[in-house]
């Protein structure tokens, strides 16, 4: 049973994320068309295929190296709100590892990575938990990881719990009134609809879980 993520695991996980996002492309666009402008599924799936194409033709010497590359690619070449926001998630994840050239990551280090991503995104996007954004998914995932680390859980158990909580976090946006992004113009009328960005972050986090479950 593996208890750390290695560089190659993350590369495989990004491939799974690409496949899962692609499967849910229409669903994500539908969510976005109710309270946004209906293009999130296309934007995020285009971004992930571009990223996987670029990754496949490159070598990385460390985990932060990979995450920095993915983050920068999102930030500089995707556009929309999705490009910078998702980019800073990956940059944030890399930033907690930058000190040493890491080539493996434990559950507690992964918690640090996602926690740094959450901080980065809240500061860039100025959104807090409860604002009906992807921060709600990330926040739920980080809280779950914190608990799992405290309980000394196995990597796959901790990641599985994280995926469950991330899904709940994404679903919790249904009961929120948007105050950020285009949905904020709907005010109370945004109630009852799940946020598309929050959903795609769940799908991406769930890719970590799918990978570990498959490799058991």
């Amino acid at each position: 049973m593996q208890n750390v993520f290695k560089l190659n695991d993350f590369i495989e996980i990004l491939k799974i994320a690409d496949t899962e996002i692609d499967k849910n492309k229409q669903y994500l666009s539908n969510l976005d068309s109710v309270i946004g402008d209906g293009d999130h599924g296309i934007t995020i799936s285009t971004a992930f295929s571009k990223i996987n194409n670029e990754i496949s033709s490159r070598n990385f010497d460390s985990i932060p190296d990979l995450f920095k590359f993915v983050g920068n690619l999102f930030i500089t070449s995707i556009g929309g709100t999705t490009g910078p926001i998702f980019g800073y998630i990956f940059i944030g994840m890399a930033s907690s590892l930058i000190e040493n050239k890491k080539d493996e990551v434990s559950l507690s280090e992964f918690y640090n990575m996602l926690s740094a991503a959450l901080q980065k995104v809240t500061s860039i996007g100025k959104a807090n938990p409860g604002d009906k954004t992807l921060v709600d998914t990330l926040n739920a995932a980080v809280s779950s990881l914190k608990e799992s680390v405290e309980k000394n859980m196995e990597l796959s158990e901790g990641i599985k719990a994280m995926a469950v909580e991330a899904q709940k976090g994404a679903e919790s946006t249904k009961d929120m009134v948007a105050t950020k992004g285009r949905a904020r113009y709907l005010g109370e009328r945004s109630l009852g609809y799940q946020d598309a960005g929050a959903t795609s972050v769940f799908i991406i986090l769930n890719a970590f879980n799918i990978y570990l479950q498959n490799s058991q």
Partner: peptide, 12 residues
């Protein structure tokens, strides 16, 4: 130019 209804990326 960005995609339809979406901001251009910084490299453009």
């Amino acid at each position: 130019h960005g995609q339809v209804f979406a901001a251009p990326s910084p490299d453009h």
